[in-house]
Nucleic acid binder design. Structure first.
Lengths: 242, 242
DNA sequence: ACTAGGGATTCTGGTCCAACAAATAGAGCG
DNA sequence: CGCTCTATTTGTTGGACCAGAATCCCTAGT
């Protein structure tokens, strides 16, 4: 056996996790503990090799992950610079538009939206202002003037986001932003089968009417129906393809 | 110069993009064009090397990305199996938050939890099994045997996570994982003022009792009270400090 | 002859290494 | 001031070995 001074990360890593995963975690910890801010630089790959006792390939694979997470921007000669593009990276995950959202993902997300949008009716009506109603009508009217499905889905998403924004809850808004790509995909799916200019439009209008009339039950009923219709379309689609 | 039959990917790659990025794109196209569904397998790394005309390390870095995107699940000897964990990965990007919990963040997150936990009572009771009740009692009993606040908070979090898990909704579970750091801080804050061995414990027990009795209203009332108590504590704390 | 068990083999991802290529920040020079 | 040149850093390559899971194959027992 050759004389090696260092013990490979392979041997020392915790059971169950790969060496790469462990190093990803160490890099995260490094950023957090060293108090590195946006614009600062990480040590070079070779320095990290020494520091983490791993080969350069392993460190590189870990760095790829951290880069994919949008935490660093790495350039030749310059090294890895701290950034924060996590939100935009989250969107990129779903740029794999060639692959369909799986059925379970779809139903989970729709159930989640039902919980958020229908479930928050009380607080929604508490905080509702005339301005909110105006905006919602305005957004919905844009739907009737659009001929592109992609664009119509964006407007549809805007409608639901505007609805949720009434709650004034940043945590919920952030989550809504993250699931935007999936929701868009779901909406596009629905709009290939239905005429958004008439059906989606009138369903939205019904929801706003109920809001304006402060009719909680009507609001919940119409909104839930609206979400469920999309679900039925998707289900049939899946049955047909599979 | 050695006689090489193949031209390195390094040379042939498009301007501006790395070879790894190009291969990620090709894998993506492969999944789309071959019509691979969840459960199917990708070719082996060595096969992909030949197919994409790249070295194994390059293919591996690309595969790491695809894996990080939640599109495949890679296991030794078995290979890369198609999955769809993209939503989960998208949320994972934000698990890096270590920011301070402001008062608004606190109240937003608690309202969010109320929406998720109290709002899903119907479906929760639909899906509830004896096993769930057993587990919840088990977790809660651990609370009485712990003397460390940090650890008690973890158990408290486990309790609420186990509760949510009854829904069988991956999207909601993922969201819960994301807000874990904030929730833990909230819980720690609450537990410095109250005795978790008696108060938190009995509140949880009350919630489980209501579940076991299939009493929806009692469940919602007790769970909401439980969440609100924490809110009141934190509010006072904040007033005092700020 | 047939089947179940177990051991050997093969295949695959995981890690490591030592080069070389390409890009570029920065030093040095005209 | 602008150019070139060098040193450093990331990017890519090909080759090697390891651990472990899947598979095959041989043997022993019925």
């Amino acid at each position: 056996m050759k004389s090696k001074t260092r013990i490979p990360a392979q041997k020392t890593r915790a059971i169950g996790g790969s060496a790469v995963d462990a190093i990803v975690e160490q890099i995260r910890a490094l950023i957090a503990n060293a108090g590195l801010k946006v614009g600062d630089n990480l040590p070079t790959e070779r320095e990290l090799c020494i520091q983490f006792n791993a080969s350069r390939n392993t460190v590189r694979e870990a760095m790829r992950i951290v880069k994919a997470y949008g935490l660093v921007d790495v350039r030749p000669k310059v090294g890895a610079t701290i950034t924060d593009n996590r939100l935009s990276r989250a969107f990129e995950l779903f740029s794999f538009n060639t692959m369909e959202v799986s059925r379970k993902t779809f139903s989970d997300v729709q159930a989640f939206r039902d919980l958020l949008e229908v479930g928050s009716a009380d607080r929604l009506l508490d905080r509702l202002t005339d301005r909110d109603v105006e905006d919602l009508y305005g957004i919905n009217n844009r739907l009737a003037e659009i001929s592109d499905i992609q664009e119509a889905s964006e407007v549809d998403y805007d409608f639901h986001t505007r609805l949720i924004s009434i709650l004034g809850n940043d945590a919920i808004m952030d989550v809504y932003k993250v699931i935007k790509p999936v929701v868009l995909r779901i909406m596009q799916k629905g709009k290939t089968r239905r005429s958004y200019k008439t059906e989606t439009y009138s369903e939205h209008a019904g929801v706003i009417d109920a809001l304006a009339a402060r009719d909680r039950l009507a609001f919940q009923y119409r909104l839930r129906s609206h979400l469920m219709i999309g679900f039925r379309n998707f289900s049939e689609e899946m049955e047909a393809t599979v």
